[in-house]
Amino acid sequence: MRPDHPTCTRRGLLRGLAAAAAGLLATGLRRWTGTVPRERELKEADFYGPDELAG
């Protein structure tokens, strides 16, 4: 931390840390609740997805 630098303050650092923690918590919650599935069971309905891939 550089005290002579106007944008580098203790308050700013704490804010940054708080934002990072909130982000991690939100991602964790989404995974926990299944909003962001990491791996999905393959179901027949999946076989007819969008036709956008080439080849």
Partner: peptide, 28 residues
């Protein structure tokens, strides 16, 4: 990737048979 399916080889083969495909393409 946003989606990763769990599909081991028997599941892929079963999927191909269920959908009436004559072949499996390893592609994209």
């Amino acid at each position: 990737m946003e989606v990763r399916y769990q599909a081991d080889p028997p599941k892929v083969v079963a999927g191909a048979l269920q959908t009436g495909c004559r072949s499996i393409a390893y592609t994209y």
